[in-house]
Write a protein that binds this DNA or RNA. Sequence first.
DNA 1: GCAAATTAATGATTTATTCAAG
DNA 2: CTTGAATAAATCATTAATTTGC
Lengths: 223, 223
Amino acid sequence: MSPSTSARWCPTPEQLMILEEMYRAGVRTPSASQIQQITAHLSLYGKIEGKNVFYWFQNHKARDRQKMRRKLTKQLQQQQQLFQQHVSPSCCSLCHSYLDHHHCPASASAFRQLSYYSPSLPPPPTSPLPSMIYAPQGGNTTGGGQMLTMDCNKWTETIRDVPRSRVEMEKSMMKMYNGDWMMVLDMDPSEFCPAKPLKTLELFPTTSTNLGEDSKDSATQPV
Amino acid sequence: MSPSTSARWCPTPEQLMILEEMYRAGVRTPSASQIQQITAHLSLYGKIEGKNVFYWFQNHKARDRQKMRRKLTKQLQQQQQLFQQHVSPSCCSLCHSYLDHHHCPASASAFRQLSYYSPSLPPPPTSPLPSMIYAPQGGNTTGGGQMLTMDCNKWTETIRDVPRSRVEMEKSMMKMYNGDWMMVLDMDPSEFCPAKPLKTLELFPTTSTNLGEDSKDSATQPV
DNA sequence: GCAAATTAATGATTTATTCAAG
DNA sequence: CTTGAATAAATCATTAATTTGC
């Protein structure tokens, strides 16, 4: 190749400015015709082809996400450290503060009922149906990372709980970040609500739809 | 089945409230362990299994998307109607007003240069590279709905520009909705900047990377 | 100052995942 | 349930910044 010609597109400052402005304006995945238009405009400022525009948005979007994820991840890690250091009270107070913070009095009161009624008591009277108690389907309730199976194909598929890549890690952390509530849920329950719900629930025989044996596979019958 | 037992899960108001609150908080696809926790909590308010929680989020997510799509589609249609009825000025004034409105003097001036320089003139002196002019690769530049092909595999795939289903329609309309700028770009350029850019650009011979035939494969050499 | 060496950015490809249609 | 389209993630490859030794 001759030295004056570059192997790859090198955006001029004007092209970059315009692209960034469009990105800031919300453009993320322009259609083919949009790319055509953009390319036509940008070609006034230097050599450029449609694929350059296409790739630019792809990359910019991806790296933007990446940056955001990293930022959130760091925030979360700090937050979790603080959490582990300073917090020991029951998860319920956290639920309350979350719900109060989000101005949802209805749900907040629903959650409060959770703490009013001890788990072994019947559900609050506002519930129209008789209280049925949750029973673990797979019978596998050991500590953490259990691999439970359910009777539904689709549901079975979501069981993989181990992030396989760094991005998966980051994504799952972001998921947790959705709200303190999720963060609490993702904790080992024995940490904060020491074995209360699950332990207690197991005491009740399963009175499921088909009243069957839950010890092995109450719900894992072949379809 | 006895009449008192329903064949399918019927969420109690409390359960529904809590689920909706979690959804509002950002929960979309809870992991298995999360579902376990949620189920345990919700079971205090009535009969429920993990798969109910799982399906609830699946369905709620899907139907939420659907609702949003429909809403946006309707909005867009109205907006487009207004647009077609009332608008006739050049796209450039729109660009300017957009950029001014968004406090981006740099890009605004860049766009202004677009109108200062007629398309047949060389690019502004601020451009560090010699001006290379855009040339349509496929040679197919007829009016509307052309099917151009580019030399890059992935990019080639994005060329189909005709939505095939209602959902596709909705998606592409949503894409256009990204910003006023995109809306302008998606218009037929002959409408507002009558055939200026493309027409003029075609006058220039392509001076691509390998100065050769770019009509077929300028960048698809085997590795 | 300057250029070789190193590192960081980013354009371009390839691979994996998601989502919806049939 | 299978498949095709679309997108995101991962990766490769080149260019620009920068550091470093002279």
